[in-house]
């Protein structure tokens, strides 16, 4: 009997997974481990898996730091869907929403001068996934990221 690789099977069908965590950075390694496994089994190469990990972490960190103001007792739901060669990642929360239009790329010289320790999160997500949107539906704010296998 010839076995079909899991990644090939997934390309032909939809797979989805949902993870619910508290808004605590201690959960980040667990989420990244799940994201890495999901992306790898969906057929993404190692470098793409790392780009996906960075994107998930940046969105999670934004939610914890800015939307929930570092409170650890709030809820974040992370949904993964792989369908038709596209990985969709949706991070849902009930904190303060984020306006992408207000985001401006920080100048690295200025950050260094001011000894600022941030400013690249959204920039990295935009570089590493094909699509980033934020929005709100049914009382949940969300970050929606899509990455195609073809890229």
């Amino acid at each position: 009997m010839i076995k079909t690789p899991v990644s090939k099977v997934l390309k032909q069908m939809a797979a989805d997974l949902s993870v619910k965590i508290h808004s605590d950075i201690d959960y980040i390694p667990y989420v990244l481990s799940i994201a890495n496994s999901f992306a790898k089994i969906s057929g993404f190469d190692d470098k793409s898996c790392k780009k996906i990990a960075v994107s998930i972490e940046e969105a999670l960190t934004n939610i914890i730091k800015y939307s929930y103001d570092n409170r650890k007792d709030k809820v974040i739901i992370i949904e993964f869907l792989f369908e038709n060669g596209v990985l969709t990642m949706k991070l849902k929360h009930k904190g303060v929403g984020f306006n992408l239009d207000e985001y401006k790329v920080k100048d690295i010289e200025q950050l260094k001068k001011e000894k600022k320790k941030g400013g690249f999160g959204i920039f990295l997500i935009r570089k590493f996934v094909d699509e980033l949107t934020v929005g709100e539906e049914r009382g949940w704010k969300y970050y929606l990221m899509k990455k195609s296998l073809k890229r």
């Binding site: 960075v54 972490e57 940046e58 960190t61 690295i108 950050l111 260094k112 000894k115 600022k116 320790k117 941030g118 400013g119 690249f120 999160g121 920039f123 990295l124």
Partner: peptide, 11 residues
């Protein structure tokens, strides 16, 4: 990630 980059920039 950006937080790691931030530590280097910050110091």
């Amino acid at each position: 990630s950006s937080i790691g980059l931030g530590v280097i920039i910050g110091y």
